[in-house]
Design a protein around this nucleic acid. Structure first.
Lengths: 125, 125
DNA sequence: ATTAAATATGAATAAGTGATCATATACGCA
DNA sequence: TGCGTATATGATCACTTATTCATATTTAAT
């Protein structure tokens, strides 16, 4: 079997690009997720990429928690936790319930719960 | 049912911290993953947090690909792809096979493959 | 041995991230 | 109404990250 060499092709933008297996690229492109899903998914993974946020989300799998308890659990400032929670809220990964002055955070996205679960299983195998 | 108020406790380091539900914190701490697993897991999520890397890993689920084909698929420079692949290699998420001048990358971590799969399923539901 | 192909690496720069500190808001209580 | 509690927000700064460009390395072909 002879080794394949590259051929030069034109990009969508007209740029020269090098390609070795056009059919493999075509296959990959046809299976490719659309831009919106990709963006959403990578944002979710980004939310999980910080150890503090990951611990918070793991803890919330067992039920809601308020800000100061999350801070105590992690050993970081309440302000830092609040900033992190804002990111999670902006992504609609968590929701809040108010009881007097306390805000109780809980998971609001089944995908994230699933991903955290899978991650945990594999990490602790 | 009366609303709980906070009590001041001492940190491991002797710092004053505010706590509302000590038993909930204790529960969360007892279920907490150890430092090494947490670090590894958040690193993996960080690898998945970049759209280009995520697309690469998704594509590699269907089989190995070489650098220039990955670059063509993504529409970015081969140098950029090479840098990204280095990060994935450093985390042992991918491995390489050499055929002449071409390096073929493939997935080398079942956890990552699983996480990408779960993410894809949920994104495309 | 030279040369070209395929990929890797290093430096530099721009953009993004996370913690901290100060301040602001929201709520309950006296 | 004024005060303390609980949380949110904004600005700032140190740090990380991703791309680009130039250069180096590895392999194969001639």
């Amino acid at each position: 079997m002879t080794t394949k060499r590259s051929t030069m092709l034109k990009d969508d933008d007209g740029c020269q690009i090098r390609v070795i297996h056009p059919e493999r690229i075509a296959q990959a492109r046809s299976n490719m997720v659309n831009g919106r899903d990709l963006s959403r998914l990578s944002s979710i993974f980004k939310a999980l990429a910080d150890p503090s946020r990951l611990l918070m989300l793991m803890a919330l799998r067992d039920g809601e928690m308020c800000v100061c308890d999350l801070a105590a659990m992690l050993g970081v400032s309440e302000s830092a936790v609040s900033h992190q929670l804002r990111r999670l809220r902006d992504l609609a990964l968590v929701r809040t319930r108010r009881d007097a002055q306390c805000l109780y955070y809980s998971l609001d996205d089944a995908h994230v719960a699933a991903l955290v679960g899978v991650g945990l299983e594999h990490a602790q195998e």
